[in-house]
């Protein structure tokens, strides 16, 4: 049987068939990209979703003709950040999405590129940290948890995300504010809020700490008790006191932002600021926030830069206290 050429054509044909099938299913316009947004994480995660939502709004609101999202995952976003800063200096069409997690990752990974090497534009959205206990737990309030923590920090196990992440930082801040040595907390790291949630529901640990969204469904169903939230003031629709009300001065927001390249002129920065402001004030963006359950914490310009500086300083000091940064 010698039928080599014909078989090759067959396979090629099969792929052309696949191409036309998919092409028919979703006819997308192919225009030159105006903005390129780097999502410093893999497809599907929070930063990727933020980047793709921003892409949709910028295109649908005709702020930008066509927007491309590029995923550069790895090391808490620091790989994407480093690549962005080195390759796009002076490029007014490049944007990167990032967030509070990056602040910690830059410190723990000793990243040579920091947020000082890019031009922060605006904070877009954010999520507060929630502290929960299993419904059957004897702990009723934040006070009870702090009392237990002071009595024997080892006996209070906390389930949350990876060591050095937002959840760990918040637990450290709570211990410090309560006068307990932050290196003495019994923090049990899980690969993400979901896996930690299973451990809390299964009564494996004393308390859980993660973004409110991870726990929301369980709190509403009554299988978890929400004892505190890390916002500055009470949040509409979340039935819990703030950590601050309990007398511990801890406010943490796991925010997400958009930044531009380094080396831009003042006019270029103003133009980008205007585009992002227009997108953030659009109804389309507000709809997305609503369906995804994201808080609108839009903050731009100098106010954002000031907040960023404060966050970086506070994070560095607590990571040193926990012993993750020297």
């Amino acid at each position: 049987m010698r039928a080599k050429p014909r078989l090759t054509e067959d396979t090629l044909l099969k792929h052309f068939f696949l191409a036309s099938l998919i092409a028919g299913a979703m006819a997308l316009p192919a225009l030159a990209a105006d903005y390129t947004i780097i999502a410093p994480a893999g497809p599907g995660g929070g930063w990727d979703q933020t980047a793709r939502s921003l892409q949709t709004v910028l295109q649908d609101e005709k702020i930008s003709g066509s927007v491309q999202v590029v995923n550069v995952p790895g090391a808490g976003g620091t790989i994407g950040l480093a690549q962005f800063a080195s390759q796009n200096s002076g490029n007014p069409n490049a944007l990167i999405v990032g967030g509070y997690v990056m602040v910690g990752a830059i410190l723990t990974n000793q990243s040579p590129v920091t947020l000082n090497d890019v031009t922060p534009i605006a904070r877009l959205t954010g999520e507060y940290e929630a502290i929960v206990v299993p419904a059957a737990s004897p702990i009723q309030t934040m006070d009870d948890l702090v009392t237990a923590l002071k009595a024997d920090p080892g006996a209070v196990s906390w389930a949350g995300g990876s060591a050095g992440g937002t959840d760990h930082i918040t637990a450290g801040l709570i211990a410090k504010a309560a006068g307990v040595d932050p290196t003495k907390i019994n923090y049990v790291a899980y690969s993400g809020g979901g896996e930690a949630l299973a451990a809390i529901l299964g009564n494996q640990v004393t308390a859980g700490i993660s973004g409110y969204g991870e726990f929301e469904a369980q709190v509403k169903a009554g299988t978890l008790r929400l004892i505190a939230i890390s916002s500055a003031e009470r949040v509409d629709g979340i039935d819990a006191p703030t950590i601050k009300e309990g007398g511990l001065d801890v406010v943490v927001e796991n925010w997400r932002m958009v930044a531009a390249a380094p080396g831009l002129s003042a006019e270029q920065v103003t133009a980008i600021n205007a585009d992002i402001e227009k997108a953030a004030n659009s109804d389309a963006w507000k709809d997305i926030l609503k369906t995804k359950g994201w808080q609108n914490t839009y903050l731009a310009g100098d106010a954002f830069k000031e907040q960023l500086g404060k966050d970086i300083a506070a994070t560095e000091s607590i990571l040193k206290d926990i012993g993750l940064v020297k």
């Binding site: 090629l12 792929h15 052309f16 696949l18 191409a19 998919i22 092409a23 979703m26 997308l28 192919a30 030159a32 491309q68 999202v69 590029v70 995923n71």
Partner: peptide
């Protein structure tokens, strides 16, 4: 040619971020 077809399917229609070069820029 085969890779370009793959690029059109996966990079354009399925939105996988595949690096574009001169050939891709010629068409998109």
């Amino acid at each position: 040619a085969f890779s370009f077809v793959v690029y059109i399917i996966f990079g354009r229609f399925l939105q996988l971020s595949l690096p574009a070069g001169p050939l891709e820029h010629l068409f998109f």
